[in-house]
Design a protein around this nucleic acid. Structure first.
Lengths: 227, 227
DNA sequence: TCACTTGTTGTCCATTTGTTCAGGAGTCCG
DNA sequence: CGGACTCCTGAACAAATGGACAACAAGTGA
C-alpha cells in the first residue's frame, strides 16, 4: 500500500512536534519552490487553461509525476501560487494614515508599485491574466480583502481632500489610476520594449517611469513633488 | 473530388466579376461574423492556448467542422480576429497636429480610449492577453506600425512642450499612461466591479472615469480642462 | 540495523484537442 | 431541370492532456 502523499500542505518548516515523527523535509521545501517558480512562468504565459503540467514539469526539470506528487492537481497548484503572491503583496504595502503627508504617501505608493513591477513582473502578469479571465479564483479575495483595502485608503485620501491638503479628485479612481499605470510596466513589457526599440529593461528605465508617474500624478492631484 | 474551401479569404462582399460566377455568399459573411464574435469571447477569456475550437463552435451555435470550414485552423482564426480589431482601432484614432490645442487633443484622446474600453471590452482584453503572452502574433505590428504611431504623436507633443504649451513631461511615457489607465476599465472590469461593489457597468461610470482621467492627467501636464 | 515516512518515477487511461476528409445538402443561374 | 459552385457535417485520428497508481528509492530517528 502506498502512503497518501502529504498533499500540498502549506510549508511547515520549523514546526515540529505536531504529532508528526519526522519534520516534513527540506527537500519538500526546495522542490515546492522550484515547481512554484516554474508554474509562475507557465501560468503567466498561458493562463490557467493554457498551462500544462507537463510544461511546468519541464521548466522545473522534474518528471510530471513528481510535480503531481507535490501538488495533487492543477487547481491546487494554481491557488497555491496566489497564496504565495498575495502574501508577498501584503508584506510590502504599508498603511497610510490621515496625518501622513499626501505627497510623500502617494509618491511612496507609486514608487513601491513600480518597484513591484520591476521585481515581480510574472506575478503581476499572472494577476492580470486571472482578472482578465474573470477572476474565477480570486473573486472572493477581490470582493472582501481588496475591497476593504481600497476603502481604507480611499477614506484617508478623502480626509486629505476635506482638509484641503490635495485637490478634490475621486480617491477610488485615483487608486485605479496608480494601479493601472504602474502595473503596465510589467504586464505590457513587450509592447513597451518594442515601441521604445529596446531589447531589455534596465533599472534606470523603471526609475525614469517612476519619476514620470510621480510627477504627473502628484501634480494632477494638486501636489508638489516631495523633496 | 471535393472542392477546396475558399479558405478564410478576407470578406469580399460586393466584389463581383473577378472571374467568379457566383458572388461569395451572404451566408459566408453572416457565419464568419458569428464565429469571429464567438472567438473573441473565447480567446479573450482563455488566451490562445487555452481557447478551444469546440468551445468557439458552441458559442457560435455551429458544429466544430463548420467553424473549421471557415477558418482552416486555429492560428488563422486568431489572426483574422486581430485584423478585424486593428482595422477598427485605426478607424477611430485621428491624428494630432502641432497646431492643435494640447488640452483639447489630449482630452479627446483620453475620452476616445475610454469609449473604446466601453464599447469593445473584449477586444481590449484580447489585446492585453496577447501582449502578456509575449505578443507572438503581434510582435511585428508593435515593432513597426505601433512604434511609428507613438513616434508621431510623441513628436507633436514634444513640439507643444518646446513651444511652452504644456509642462515638460516625457511624451512617450504620457502615451503609456493614457493607454494603461484607459484600458484598465476594460481589462480589469471584474476587479473594478468587485471593489466598487457593483454588478455591472453603466454608461455614467465610464463618463465619470473619463472625467477623472481628463482632469488629473491634464492637470498633471500643466493644462486646463477644456470647456 | 530496523521500521517507517517521505520522495521518485514509469506506466496506464479516459478524455480532449486540432485537424482531415469524404460525401452530401443547399443555392444560384441559365 | 442541370450543373457548377458554395456550404455543411459526422466520422475518424494522432497527439496531448490531467490524473491515478503501484513499485521502488532515499531519508530518518531509534
Amino acid at each position: 500500500m502506498t502512503k497518501q502523499p502529504v498533499a500540498d500542505a502549506p510549508s511547515r518548516i520549523g514546526h515540529p512536534g505536531n504529532g508528526r515523527k519526522y519534520r516534513p523535509g527540506r527537500i519538500r521545501e526546495r522542490n515546492r519552490e522550484k515547481i512554484l517558480q516554474a508554474a509562475e512562468q507557465e501560468f503567466a504565459q498561458h493562463g490557467y487553461k493554457g498551462a500544462t503540467i507537463q510544461n511546468i514539469a519541464e521548466r522545473a526539470g522534474l518528471p510530471k509525476s513528481n510535480v503531481l506528487y507535490y501538488f495533487s492537481n492543477k487547481k491546487r497548484m494554481y491557488s497555491a501560487m496566489f497564496d504565495d503572491i498575495l502574501a508577498r503583496w501584503n508584506k510590502v504595502f504599508t498603511d497610510i494614515r490621515p496625518e501622513d503627508d499626501p505627497a510623500v504617501a502617494l509618491s511612496t505608493f507609486i514608487r513601491t508599485k513600480v518597484e513591484m513591477s520591476r521585481r515581480y513582473p510574472l506575478a503581476s502578469r499572472l494577476f492580470a491574466m486571472e482578472i482578465i479571465q474573470g477572476a474565477p479564483f480570486l473573486l472572493d479575495h477581490l470582493r472582501t480583502n481588496m475591497r476593504e483595502w481600497v476603502r481604507g485608503r480611499a477614506e484617508v485620501m478623502q480626509q486629505w481632500i476635506n482638509d484641503g491638503r490635495m485637490a478634490p479628485v475621486d480617491p477610488v479612481q485615483l487608486i485605479f489610476l496608480i494601479w493601472s499605470s504602474t502595473q503596465h510596466y510589467a504586464d505590457f513589457q513587450v509592447q513597451i520594449l518594442m515601441v521604445e526599440n529596446k531589447a531589455e529593461y534596465e533599472k534606470r528605465d523603471f526609475d525614469h517611469a517612476a519619476d514620470f508617474l510621480v510627477e504627473v500624478i502628484l501634480r494632477g492631484c494638486g501636489l508638489e513633488k516631495p523633496t
